[in-house]
């Protein structure tokens, strides 16, 4: 009877936690994640790479650290754009509307609640090509570097949070790999 009982109970309680994942498990750069869209819209490959399908939203959390530099390689495999949201929470976005970094094939822009803070149409996503994206939270300064171009370096009013949210709008698909963080203010 125990052999029947235990898997059933395990099934019961694993159903509560299936949207959570970790990347870089076993290293010092472990990141915690949560799938905020349909479970199948985000795939975690070998705990190092995220494949965010059309309509997918993956939230990454650098636990207990808000002052850090996020670094990742992004490859647009389908569609035209990817949105990276910072200084926000994955749920209750109404509490803290995010600052959105929109990286598309027609250029990139940084938006705050629909207002364009900066726009750069020379830094473009090239489908199938990996590009390094750096997002730095240092006090109220937010710095965004795509490739070798610093596209944004300004103070923003929103508080820093532990989260970076990767979102593939409908019709787009992105592969995010080599995710790493580095504290900007050593404790």
């Amino acid at each position: 009877m125990k052999t029947l009982f235990l898997p059933l109970i395990a099934l019961l309680f694993t159903s509560c936690v299936s949207e959570y994942f970790t990347v870089n498990e076993g290293t010092s750069a472990v990141l915690y994640g949560k799938i905020m869209s349909e479970l199948d819209s985000v795939e975690v490959v070998r705990q190092t790479t995220l494949r965010v399908y059309s309509g997918g939203v993956a939230a990454l959390r650098n636990y207990n650290t808000t002052q850090c530099r996020w670094e990742l390689l992004a490859k647009l495999t389908k569609g035209t754009e990817t949105v990276y949201r910072v200084r926000t929470l994955p749920i209750e976005r109404a509490l803290i509307p995010s600052i959105d970094i929109v990286y598309s094939t027609s250029g990139c822009r940084v938006e705050e609640e629909g207002r364009v803070l900066v726009s750069n149409d020379t830094v473009r996503a090239v489908p199938g090509v990996e590009e390094k994206i750096q997002v730095t939270n240092d006090g109220d300064f937010l710095t965004v570097v795509i490739g070798c171009t610093r596209v944004f370096h300004q103070p923003v009013a929103k508080p820093s949070t532990e989260w970076l949210v990767v979102e593939s709008p409908s019709g787009s698909e992105v592969v995010v790999s080599r995710m790493a963080t580095e504290e900007t203010r050593p404790r």
């Binding site: 808000t66 002052q67 006090g139 103070p155 508080p159 820093s160 949070t161 532990e162």
Partner: peptide
């Protein structure tokens, strides 16, 4: 329970 950390910067 969702526990979130914010850093607020005042200049």
């Amino acid at each position: 329970t969702e526990r979130d950390l914010y850093t607020i910067t005042d200049r």
